[in-house]
Design a protein around this nucleic acid. Structure first.
Lengths: 372, 372
DNA sequence: CTGAAAGCGCTTACAG
DNA sequence: CTGAAAGCGCTTACAG
């Protein structure tokens, strides 16, 4: 390695590692020769009337001592601290990192710190994160992911949420949940229905659906959209084409196998999220099935990768960053005593290269599935 | 929408929104008829000797009151709270979300909460996040991204880091930084050099390099690797083929333009991260330049998308999740008074479809750049 | 404009 | 095994 390339290296003085308690407001007050009350007013209550010379002396002392107020002590007096906790299913899922980024961008303006927690949709993890956030008196709690169908989880969750609201914090849902519709989000059913319509418009009538985990409220909404889309096109719903799946690439690949092993022909696959669609795309490719020539594939969410794969994925765009941003705004307004209205944002169909008119012959190969 | 589909909906009772202060240890003690000292010992000091009946009465009271200890009050007595702050450049960059996930997975086992902060490489944002984390007495601070070349930032940062270590917390670097090498990370220079070597092995000698932002320490290390790789292959370094760029897709696309507008022929493009390589791939495709037939492209990091694009991207795999996991472990051991050794993890060359033997004629088109 | 004092919710020597 | 009391670092009526 190019050691020695960097002349600055030599100038670095090792940082001492002694335990050295930080300066407190008492230290600052002492050094400035004032009461802690006055010192506190100078460093924290910018608008409080303090004589110019006193103010300057306190500021000088604070600078000298590298004083930074203890947020814990301060938080003990307020009802909550300026921290917003975001519960996601998995931060490596681009859907969630985009939402979190939206929250961050809005929150840092308001001096809020963002705590991200990946629950992996495990009730106990979700619960313990919420409990921790509650114990820290976080000012806002944002559920980015969908609620789960788990009565015991939801019971306990309701208790926590009541307690959290009880100490004055805001709780915001960005996805359908146990207690109802999102505060800020999209109409998932309408979004999926619009993609069904688009596929029907291309000539498809045998549309398979990779529905995601049925215990997720959001997956149920998207499934409703699928049925609604079919219904308004006059296409009968065929249960054998509507699969229950996970919400990741592996599940999408497995679902393709399952469809091919079934005996119902199909000309298009609509997935309840992009990850599923991406997995389907991969597996189809491995099997030598051409997209969109042999079968069309569409996703939902429009994560970044959707536009980069080949063929690029037709999907439904969700304004993820905006959902995060408005989610924090919703919390902020709630905190301010406002009662903000629900915001349902529009989705948008994005047609790329993975969809086309259906093949002459619907897909229904006689292949043994490779796994499962 | 399928309103009414869900019979549970009707059963939901609206949560009361009154401000209701949470039960404190005093409330629990009172209800149980014991002192706060005893109550505290039962709920927090599992190993402290308390009579079985007393213990049961306290637990019962805590349950009745839905008692959750106030982490702020507790933190005021300890030197720090069980929170680990992770400073990343951008959480929507898969590189970072993967690392954060690694930290989370390790941290949740230790009862630590993860705070993620996207600095966008803006010194003031980074500083204010670190300040906030310090003010909250976070137990660990992990810098996931590279240090910046900004003397004023680094001055202030050193003060904060000394203060943070001063109150007993751990500070960990996962990438090269102002004060030296990462505590847990990879040998970036060696990784890039190994990819140069692989390209040379395919027959390339005119290898362009998209180097990332020069003020990032990690970009400098990767650039060193590029030079070192060339040197050991006996290929002279040509400055005109080594571009300074950003670290995202747009920058990769622009760099392609720049290379094509230059007068130095090249048969391969090696990018200092995958996002750059992905952007280069896109632009080349738009220009009708075939990869790898006309030019080979290689990246660095191996983010998920790298394997999904077409042609799939040859790259250098970094164990990102592992880096995050070990990063937290490093912090944990430091907190335990240990002095853990630095961990430099191996990188791995991943050859996919974007690289091949060089074309007969090196690329050096006479095209006007489309933008810039 | 300034200060003395109480108190937020907890834990922990110290004493019994 | 249990409790009274001090104290972590701050803010805020209250009094002057």
């Amino acid at each position: 390695m190019a050691v020695g390339d960097d002349p600055r290296r030599a100038a670095i003085v090792p940082v001492p590692v002694l335990i050295r308690p930080l300066a407190s407001i008492t230290d600052v007050a002492k050094l400035a020769g004032v009461s802690t009350a006055t010192a506190s007013r100078v460093v924290s209550a910018a608008e409080y009337a303090v004589s110019a010379t006193t103010r300057e002396r306190v500021l000088e002392a604070a600078r000298t001592l590298d004083y930074v107020p203890n947020a814990l002590a301060r938080g003990l007096l307020k009802s909550y601290i300026p921290v917003v906790g975001v519960i996601v299913h998995d931060i490596t899922d681009p859907y969630f990192s985009e939402v979190v980024r939206g929250v961050e961008d809005a929150a840092s303006g308001g001096g809020f710190l963002v705590i991200t927690c990946s629950s992996d949709r495990v009730p106990d993890r979700e619960l313990s994160y919420v409990r921790l956030l509650r114990s820290m008196r976080a000012g806002a709690l944002i559920f980015a992911g969908s609620g789960l169908d788990d009565p015991q989880l939801n019971d306990e969750m309701r208790r926590h949420i009541a307690a959290i609201r009880g100490y004055g914090a805001a709780v915001v849902h960005l996805s359908p949940h146990d207690a109802g519709e999102p505060d800020v989000g999209v109409d998932n059913a309408a979004g999926v229905a619009s993609m069904v319509e688009a596929l029907v418009g291309l000539g498809h009538r045998q549309i398979a659906f990779l529905g995601g985990p049925p215990r997720l409220h959001v997956a149920r909404h998207r499934r409703d959209g699928y049925r609604r889309g079919l219904a308004s096109a006059g296409i009968p719903f065929d249960e054998r084409l509507a699969l229950e799946t996970g919400f990741n690439r592996e599940a999408g690949a497995r679902a393709v196998q399952e469809l091919l092993a079934g005996d119902v022909p199909f000309t298009a696959i609509l997935a309840a999220n992009d990850l599923l669609a991406l997995g389907a795309l991969e597996r189809l490719q491995e099997l030598g099935i051409r997209v969109p020539d042999d079968v069309s594939v569409a996703g939902f969410d429009d994560i970044q990768t959707a536009g980069l794969v080949a063929p690029s994925l037709s999907t439904v765009r969700l304004p993820l960053h905006e959902i995060g941003r408005l989610g924090f705004e919703f919390a902020e307004r709630t905190l301010a005593g406002d009662d903000p209205p629900r915001r349902i944002l529009p989705t948008e169909i994005v047609i790329r290269d993975s969809t086309a008119a259906p093949a002459r012959v619907a897909l229904q190969l006689e292949r043994a599935p490779r796994d499962e």
